[in-house]
Design a protein around this nucleic acid. Structure first.
Lengths: 166, 166
DNA sequence: TTGCTCCTCACGTCACGTGAGGTGGC
DNA sequence: TTGCTCCTCACGTCACGTGAGGTGGC
């Protein structure tokens, strides 16, 4: 019935792991974890008498969420706000609502970024297609011919992105 | 025949603009432009006798490309490499090949990021769906019940992302 | 001359990177 | 005891932010 992986230890916590192991499993390093502790973003569950940090393995999910939100452009202090621990006096309903709010906010951020990236991807493809047409031409886009704007071949200009590369 | 917008000035350049105008149109600020100049990433086409920077409007495309590559996680020095000005002795074919290479590299970066974000979006949706099921339950996910892992309602655990929010 | 923009230092910040020098614990 | 991991300062870095104090140009 009991999974040894989640076997509680001492005061009901799941197994605690040291900072090096935690860092490796979170795909980060010691400095980052100490900085997150300084910010109050990810705290070790305990410290040994000698000062060693001991982390809950469950906090690895928190680390993954932080990394995801960071890639979306959020600052660590903002992330700390989104992942705020439950308010002391909050009801179950309030807590659930806060979590739901944080998740839908993250969903919206992802959607925005997806839209940006999709447009960017399309522009790159258009630029590559236009570059293919240039194979049939002998001009070299440069400042001198205003980056082939307009194109001597079909009158249509090079995409703006392309002129940035010359 | 001549478009006044692209009318050459003095030595064949299109109209030059001052740093403030350039910054506003590029969606950035003076400090960033001076820093890019220091790195050799974006150079003013000319300087006035008094020291004022004058930029080519065409460089706005370069600014847009830099911003796009930066959001993809590239450092400014890497971006400088991708956007390297043509080598002095390069043939038309070599230049074109370099541009094509830079663009396809950017395309691959975008595709990678799109895949990451799509997976992230799916996980957020799954978490929200699971949170909906929690409405029929009275438990509060917390350390005490190991973040409802396993869930008392259907045996399936909360998604990992969710436990990070408690 | 006034107002606005621009200039060059130069120090601050965010999220860490990178040693220096010392200690913990199997 | 040895080896590896961990500890706390503390300074460095990247990409700017933010004044201070002064000048350009319509």
């Amino acid at each position: 019935m009991h999974d040894p992986e989640t076997e509680p230890k001492a005061d009901g916590d799941a197994a605690l792991i040291k900072i090096g192991d935690f860092a490796r499993r979170a795909g980060t390093n010691l400095r980052t974890l100490r900085y997150y502790e300084e910010l109050g973003l990810v705290l070790p569950a305990a410290r040994s008498a000698g000062g060693l940090r001991y982390y809950r393995a469950a906090e690895l999910d928190r680390m993954a969420m932080i990394a995801g939100l960071q890639r979306l452009g959020l600052e660590l202090v903002q992330i700390r706000g989104l992942l705020a621990t439950r308010e002391p006096g909050a009801s179950r309903e309030e807590s659930m609502a806060r979590v739901r709010h944080a998740l839908s906010e993250q969903g919206e951020l992802i959607d925005q970024r997806l839209a940006e990236l999709t447009a960017q991807r399309r522009r790159v493809d258009e630029a590559l297609a236009k570059l293919g047409e240039c194979d049939a031409c002998s001009h070299h886009p440069a400042v001198g011919n205003n980056f082939c704007h307009p194109c001597q071949l079909d009158g249509r200009p090079l995409p703006a992105d392309l002129s940035a590369l010359f």
